[in-house]
Design a protein around this nucleic acid. Structure first.
Lengths: 292, 292
DNA sequence: GTTAGTCATAGATATGGTCTATATCTCCTC
DNA sequence: GAGGAGATATAGACCATATCTATGACTAAC
């Protein structure tokens, strides 16, 4: 049976209002249209659905049975349509973001807070991972949006640049002697260096910079979180390579100080990644606007 | 939102098959039609529902949410359509018949039995009542079909005549003297007469016949069931007025014999009543055919 | 009888669903 | 890398049919 489901909508309203005229009004149609539609439905399924009388229409036994199904069906469609409106209006839905721990903590946190206050109906899912992990989450469709350090070269991804961050070397009081100087790479390498673990983009960037000048930068200590980078430097275990913006508090209060190099460390940008040529959810679109 | 629900059918199949091409086949449409329909649905609800890729299509987050509603909705419609087919094919449904006790027992029983064996999916509801009660059941829509004695004069009813029944007076061995005679009304009235209760059509008919000849037929005993009419006559409590066909067994075995009158008692027919100008259920239609 | 409300019917109209033909893209094979 | 086989998208023509207007038929109420 290959019925036009539109007829069930007409049936639903005719049954619900008990009047073809009222159904026509509800559906923004004329009464003859509704009359015709009902007749057609009856012919197609081969069952008389309504008693016609001078006051309107009422369901036959068979009509009542049909209605018990169709009513549920129509209610589900109404709920679906309401839900879609809610998703579109960001009253509902979810936003799945992938990124590094430090970016979540030091960069995204205020945006996430604002977004959550403004759109409380949207559930936030934060997936921590390294840059390659985040990229694969994106490709698997497990997240809507990835937030990582630039540069990203992947033709499947569409990257929007966000703020610029400046990485730098910092140390604590133990190396106070280095304050105000501009060290060469060789000089710096005489001190114990603390770097983030191997697969980090920041680590790769600084390693490459040193290589460019013919040096191999090997850390004395390798850690897995920005918090430890900061903590170790503070305690004088060595010189940490961190993002300046993420240690703003420590620099200000003086528990850390920046060690200048005689070569310029190029700044790096934060990139917001989504899949290229893939539709983006309303929530992700809005979040990118907010961050941008 | 005044969407064409037909689009949800297309959406359902596209999502279910994961391919616009497959959905087109399932719906006996062409692929561009389906593509266009999906695009239209997406535009109308303002949400992208599918990722298009080279292998087919897959649902976005929002699409999945929509599908969870629409799937249920479509399943209900399918069930509804199956149910309607079952009703039409008499694999399912119910048949509500109103009639007198005696007609059910002595006339309808074999038909009901056959009908039930042939259409086991149809539930039978038998509503006992007097002729006026049965007519009001019909008008209230509580039964589909009424089975009563003719004649019926009611312009709202459509009556189909069924078999003819002959009423007669019968007595048991106690009145054996009356065998083979043709009694006059006066003679008969000298014996105790047992009649069915007042509101019965059979009782009315015989009372009227006597009145036509100037006699008032008053029962000595009035009972409420045909079984009692028979039982009382058998036990010699008087002469019962019964339907000959309903005492066929007793007449044959000799526990009752018929008392002939010198006037002819007109036969009466059984009528099958339905509401005029009202659609009749498939089950009722079929049952009338069977009986007829 | 008249009026006002039903639903049904007939015929004209035009919306829009569907088709054919073609383009574009991706993946896979050779 | 060229070519083929799949997928979906797009454009434009067509025509089926949903819808409308106008009218009829019927019922209930006044």
């Amino acid at each position: 049976m290959t019925n036009n489901y539109e007829l069930y909508k007409v049936f639903y309203w005719a049954a619900k209002t008990g009047s073809l005229t009222q159904a026509a009004k509800a559906l923004y149609l004329t009464q003859p249209s509704v009359s015709h539609a009902i007749k057609q439905l009856e012919e197609r399924i081969g069952v008389t659905l309504f008693y016609r009388n001078s006051k309107g229409v009422s369901l036959t036994q068979e009509g009542k049975i049909l209605f018990s199904y169709i009513e549920q069906s129509q209610i589900l469609i109404s709920l679906a349509e309401e839900k879609m409106v809610a998703l579109k209006n960001l009253d509902s839905g979810e936003l799945r973001i992938g990124g590094s721990d430090s970016l979540f903590k030091h960069y995204l946190l205020p945006f996430l807070e604002d977004f959550h206050v403004k759109y409380p109906g949207i559930k936030l899912h934060l997936n921590h991972g390294t840059t390659p992990e985040v990229i694969s989450y994106l490709k698997e469709g497990r997240i809507d949006l990835g937030v990582v350090r630039m540069p990203i070269f992947d033709s499947q991804l569409e990257v929007t640049e966000s703020i610029e961050l400046q990485d730098c070397f910092v140390a604590g009081e133990r190396y106070a002697e280095l304050k105000g100087q501009a060290l060469s790479m060789e000089q710096l390498m005489e001190y114990p260096v603390i770097l983030f673990s191997r697969n980090s983009r920041v680590r790769m960037a600084i390693t490459e910079l040193f290589e460019k000048y013919g040096h191999e930068l090997k850390p004395d200590i390798e850690v897995g979180s920005v918090d430890l980078l900061i903590e170790f430097a503070k305690r004088g275990l060595g010189i940490s390579y961190v993002t300046r913006e993420f240690v703003a508090k420590e620099l200000k209060e003086g528990s850390l100080f920046e060690i200048e190099l005689d070569v310029e460390i190029p700044p790096s940008k934060v990139g917001l990644m989504v899949m290229r040529n893939m539709p983006i959810s309303a929530a992700a679109t809005r979040f990118i606007e907010v961050v941008h």
